[in-house]
Amino acid sequence: MPKINGNEIKPGNILEHNGGLWIAVKVDHVKPGKGGAFAQVEMKNLRNGSKLNERFRSADKVEKVRLDQKDQQFLYETDGMLVFMDMETYEQIELPADILGDRRPFLQDGMTIQIEYYEAEAISAALPQKVTCTVVETEPAVKGQTAANSFKPAVLDNGVRVMVPPFVGQDEAIVVNTETMEYAERA
């Protein structure tokens, strides 16, 4: 694994620090009036989600980790575990359902998601950026309410509540951005 200097850390880098795997969430380069410059790095642990603020000087060496990414197909859920199949080897793996966090409702049968591995351990899972869902409940459009920024609440087929434009009706398919969990467009 390559070692990088403390001032080369960028947001999104995955680092091995204090025996754990951390992702750099926020990096501020600070140049105080006295003393040398340093990078103030806010990090999040990839295994347990704990946060850490650390200072790295340019002379500090940090281990930069590269994760392997594999596309895997979602098969089913059993006892709080999600079962995925490797698209090339057809091997099946089980991951805890909380690996997706609050985006879990957007996971659909047969969906291909990207799982990141560190050596043989699955660290994270990423859903496709856009997912198609059906609106099961929303208010009818109010005539004359055509303001550019007017939105109304809607409940999707997976139970998630989102805000949709007034022209979207019940039983309509819409595309939802899974990163922001917001309406993107009509399907």
Rank of each mutant, 00 (worst) to 15 (best):
R55Y: 05
L82E: 05
E77T: 15
L95M: 11
T78V: 15
T78E: 14
D98N: 07
D28C: 13
R103T: 11
V30P: 02
V65L: 01
Q69W: 04
F38A: 04
N48G: 04
N13K: 03
R103I: 10
K51Q: 07
F56N: 06
G20I: 00
G35I: 11
F56H: 06
A97L: 00
V83N: 04
I14H: 00
V25W: 10
N13Q: 01
I99V: 15
A24W: 05
G35F: 05
E94C: 02
V41Q: 04
G33Y: 09
Y76I: 15
N53D: 11
L15V: 09
W22Y: 09
Y76E: 14
L15N: 01
K10P: 08
L21I: 00
F84A: 05
R57A: 12
M87P: 06
V27H: 04
Q69E: 06
D71Q: 09
G20H: 10
M81H: 06
G20W: 07
G49T: 07
E42R: 03
L100F: 13
L100S: 06
L95W: 05
I9G: 04
N18S: 03
D68R: 15
K44I: 12
T89L: 07
S50P: 11
H17M: 02
R104V: 13
W22S: 00
F56V: 05
W22P: 02
A59W: 05
K10S: 13
N48E: 01
G49I: 10
L75S: 10
Q40T: 07
I99F: 06
P32I: 03
L67N: 08
Q73N: 09
S58E: 09
V83Q: 10
E8P: 03
L46D: 00
E54L: 07
Q73R: 15
G80V: 14
I99N: 03
E88F: 05
I14L: 00
L75E: 14
L75A: 14
N45Q: 10
G35C: 03
P11H: 01
G36H: 09
E42P: 01
V62E: 03
A97S: 11
R66H: 10
I23V: 14
R104E: 14
M85I: 15
D79N: 12
D68H: 03
G49V: 02
I99G: 11
A97D: 05
T89S: 15
Q40C: 14
R103K: 14
P11K: 02
G36A: 10
G12R: 07
D68N: 06
Q73K: 09
Y90F: 08
V30L: 00
R47K: 09
M81A: 13
D28W: 00
M81T: 13
K26E: 14
K10I: 09
K61H: 01
I23T: 08
G12D: 10
Q73M: 12
R57Q: 11
G35V: 10
E16C: 08
N13A: 12
K31Q: 13
E8T: 14
I93A: 09
P32Q: 02
G19A: 02
